[in-house]
Simulated assay, not measured.
Amino acid sequence: MGKKITMLDIANKAGVSKATVSMVINKTDNKISEETRKKILNIAKELNYIPNSIARSLSTNKSNTIGIILPDITNPFFAEIARAIEDEASENGYNVIFCNTDNVIEKEEKYTKLLISKLIDGVIFISGGDSSKSIKILEDNNIHFILVDRYIESYYKYYGVYCLNEKGVKEGIEYLYSKNNKKIAFVSGPKEIQVSMQRLKGYKETMTKYGIYKNNLVFEGDFTINGGKKATEEILKINEKVDAIFYSNDMMAYGGMKVLVKKGYKIPKDISIMGFDNINISKFIEPELTTVGQPIYSMGKNSCNLLIKLINNENIDKRQIYFETKLIIRDTVSMTP
């Protein structure tokens, strides 16, 4: 294996000093002629030179790299957010390092430390549970961060991008009720995640308003397909016919629909189904899922923009950005006789 190409190699071939090459590579070449600059860049390209980003970040105090910590990359909701962040970061000259925690807090803390060791400029953080320790690590190391989608109890006033979850669930229940669905089961997410509790609150308040709330119609899931399947099996065991099931994310809705179809239920003739998120596949799987939509791409894009403003010490009007949800009416809800 040959030695790594260095700035000195480029300088020797270009007939200039190493300092001149450094200025061109690091874009501090205001006093260097366009001819020399192009010559150096062409030689660097010809030799497949890759700059030492760590060395550069030590000298400039900036790596032009941001980290994304997310809980489950297999969930299309997070994959779509990550894509939006990557698109926006690339547009603004930033690289991205993805870290998938599998909703495991220990992995989350490990990746937080890893990103800091890579000299990242900031982190977009989507919590997998009680993430206060990970956030404290970022704070102690003066790393800018933006919270997305999920609140963290002691950091609810910090910079963040969220959706109006409670309001979205209320709108969903109102729609189900307008279709004469009164026995509505609800599958929440894990109780340690704030967004789960917000959605559950929206369900409880609206059901109570109409005098139809029953504690035995609330089930806890984990925002996964398997979690939806397990919760649905529990719902089918109760000695009560259910008109509709409201899953607090689309992935659990798909898990539940699989169980119901296997049991011989026709959706929505026998039972109505509603999800939450409006992930891309919602409009492709039959029957198409009625769901409460979040503007996923916009959330990712805005979180990246907010982080870059923080990194560059730009003026920020709002510490938190809240997006409205939108009821997406498709084919899984019908009128109950």
Score class of each variant (00 low, 15 high):
Gly2Pro: 00
Lys4Glu: 06
Ile5Phe: 02
Met7Ile: 12
Met7Arg: 14
Ile10Leu: 14
Lys13Ala: 07
Ala14Gly: 06
Ala19Asn: 13
Met23Val: 10
Val24Thr: 08
Ile25Asn: 10
Ile25Pro: 02
Thr28Cys: 07
Asp29Tyr: 05
Asp29Val: 10
Asp29Ile: 14
Asn30Gln: 13
Glu34Asn: 11
Thr36Trp: 06
Arg37Pro: 01
Arg37Asn: 11
Lys39Cys: 07
Lys39Thr: 08
Leu41Val: 09
Leu41Trp: 05
Ile50Arg: 14
Ile50Gly: 05
Pro51Glu: 15
Ser53Met: 15
Ser53Gly: 05
Arg56Glu: 10
Asn61Glu: 13
Lys62Arg: 15
Asn64Trp: 07
Ile66Met: 10
Ile68Val: 15
Pro71Trp: 11
Ile85Pro: 00
Ala89Trp: 01
Ser90Gly: 01
Glu91Tyr: 05
Gly93Ile: 06
Tyr94Ala: 04
Tyr94Cys: 00
Val96Gln: 04
Val96Tyr: 01
Asp102Gly: 00
Asn103Asp: 13
Glu108His: 02
Ile116Pro: 01
Lys118Glu: 09
Ile120His: 04
Gly122Trp: 07
Phe125Gly: 02
Gly129Tyr: 04
Asp130Leu: 15
Asp130Ile: 08
Ile135Thr: 12
Lys136Glu: 14
Leu138Tyr: 06
Leu138Glu: 05
Asn141Asp: 05
Arg150Trp: 01
Glu153Gln: 14
Glu153Arg: 12
Ser154Gly: 10
Tyr155Arg: 14
Tyr158Asn: 13
Tyr159His: 12
Gly160Pro: 00
Gly160Lys: 11
Tyr162Ala: 05
Cys163Gln: 09
Lys167Trp: 03
Gly168Ser: 09
Gly168Tyr: 08
Glu171Asn: 10
Glu171Phe: 03
Gly172Pro: 01
Glu174Tyr: 01
Tyr177Glu: 08
Asn180Thr: 03
Lys182Phe: 01
Val187Leu: 06
Val187Phe: 02
Val187Arg: 08
Ser188Arg: 08
Val195His: 03
Ser196Lys: 11
Gln198Lys: 13
Gln198Leu: 13
Leu200Cys: 03
Leu200Pro: 01
Lys204Thr: 02
Lys204Ile: 12
Glu205Phe: 04
Lys209Met: 13
Lys209Pro: 00
Lys209Arg: 15
Lys209Ser: 09
Gly211Asn: 15
Ile212Glu: 15
Tyr213Phe: 15
Phe223Gln: 05
Phe223Met: 09
Asn226Arg: 11
Lys229His: 02
Ala231Asp: 05
Ile238Pro: 01
Asn239Gly: 09
Lys241Asp: 09
Asp243Arg: 11
Ala244His: 02
Phe246His: 04
Gly255Trp: 00
Met257Glu: 11
Lys258Asp: 12
Leu260Glu: 03
Leu260Asn: 04
Leu260Gly: 00
Val261Asp: 12
Lys262Glu: 15
Gly264Leu: 12
Ile267Lys: 09
Ile267Asn: 03
Pro268Phe: 13
Lys269Gly: 00
Lys269Pro: 00
Ser272Val: 03
Ser272Thr: 05
Phe276Thr: 02
Phe276Ser: 04
Ile279Arg: 07
Ile279Leu: 06
Glu286Phe: 08
Leu289Gly: 03
Leu289Asp: 03
Ile296Thr: 07
Tyr297Trp: 10
Gly300Arg: 11
Leu307Trp: 05
Asn312Gln: 14
Asn312Gly: 03
Glu314Leu: 09
Glu314Gly: 02
Asn315Lys: 15
Ile316Tyr: 11
Arg319Gly: 04
Ile321Arg: 11
Thr325Val: 06
Leu327Phe: 02
Leu327Lys: 10
Leu327Ile: 10
Arg330Met: 07
Asp331Gly: 12
Val333Tyr: 04
Pro337Ile: 13
